[in-house]
Design a protein around this nucleic acid. Sequence first.
DNA 1: GAAATCAAAATGTCAGACAATTAAACTCCG
DNA 2: CGGAGTTTAATTGTCTGACATTTTGATTTC
Lengths: 244, 244
Amino acid sequence: MKIDPKSKADLSAQIAKSIRDAIIEGQMNVDDRLPSEAELADQFDVSRPTVREALKRLAAQNLIRTQRGATGGAFVRRLSYQDAYANHITTSTLLLSMNAVDFETACEARYALERACAPLSAERRTPDHLATMRAEIHRQAQPGLSDESFCDSDVAFHRALVDGAGNPVLSYQLAGAVEAMQPLMNMITFTARNREVIVGLHTCIADAIEAGTAQAADQALAELTAYTLKLGDQAMAERAAKSG
Amino acid sequence: MKIDPKSKADLSAQIAKSIRDAIIEGQMNVDDRLPSEAELADQFDVSRPTVREALKRLAAQNLIRTQRGATGGAFVRRLSYQDAYANHITTSTLLLSMNAVDFETACEARYALERACAPLSAERRTPDHLATMRAEIHRQAQPGLSDESFCDSDVAFHRALVDGAGNPVLSYQLAGAVEAMQPLMNMITFTARNREVIVGLHTCIADAIEAGTAQAADQALAELTAYTLKLGDQAMAERAAKSG
DNA sequence: GAAATCAAAATGTCAGACAATTAAACTCCG
DNA sequence: CGGAGTTTAATTGTCTGACATTTTGATTTC
């Protein structure tokens, strides 16, 4: 592992990249120990603080973990789905909020991806997934539920639907789209009538998933897409009216 | 912004989290300047190196950029799609390689997501997207193309298909699934016969996208899924035979 | 032989210094 | 008065050296 002396980028960034590449390309395996900070400083011919900055960069990406003590050091970390989820959701949320992705685009993406999962979920969902979906529908029908709790439940419902496909890669990809949209969904005020419609469609979806009829699920999801878009438009219009 | 004196986590991690939260919750906006390292050190009552480690963590997540000089400092960065893509792809690739996601799961996820895009792409693709797809098909048919180049072209083709949907959120989500699978695809040896079939299906897809017939595209993608799975199985079997 | 102690290795943190970079303020001359 | 060059100040980037803390393993002692 060497760094380019001509590059004018930060040394810590170069060192981090060098180590990161070594990990990604499989030169280092999970739980392998990196050389100590002092040794790395020697190897790269920099000071220990610089090495430390590089290691903190890697730690921020969940690529390594550090451990103090005699047998301590920095170890290559097994990237967990949980870490990756969290990271993905944070990034997706920031992307949506910072780049002003409009509601329509986010909504379209979310439901397009969900519809991709539905047929698989109809085929493979476990009773657990189904029970979660039913429980969330029941929760959504409770009167007096706050808009925020309703959104939370909505996320949980759709998450169960996606997880039902039994494909962790799909679940991972979808988590970003579904959860990142929550802040946008939170801007919508759900009237009793709105909730009734949504609960109805959720019930249709759950029924279809239970019966294994993919096409019915797809149909209900399409309707839900259209309805959500309509609600979003209304919310945006109200916002514009207030601020204008 | 304050940190918990009782927490036994690294100070730099706590400080990074504190600043990150401030950014995510909108207390700081794009291009806002953070206090200087010296000021942050004062505020959090730590030394400058510790603050620097915290800032490097944030820089690793593309949340800030730093600039030297008189009017320099750390600034909240607008997260670009490009950065997010790169990050997403790295994470997805690591997840697949570290967690031993099997070929079948990755493949299923990829094509499920692509099929979600196809109808939108059939409706909205620009001539540019179509031209890219045709060009990549042409490249794939060249004799003497290396397996790696064939895979690259495959990625480019599918990327054009996805981008044709004109939804950056979808493109972002899909980039992870499509590109992260490349290392797995690279393990497959593509015979001339294999390539012929794939080019044929790609042509079907491009034709369908051009004609705006979503169902035909979906059909071709389904066939491509099955065929890719078959090739993957063969490659795995060969591997097992060799190593066993 | 077991418990207590000590030494060693590693990360975590600090203080102070200097280098490099950049923009603004200032000076000087035409 | 104006512009070009110079100085200055602010800020990040890096280094050196030190000490604190944590953990393990060896050593000592009873």
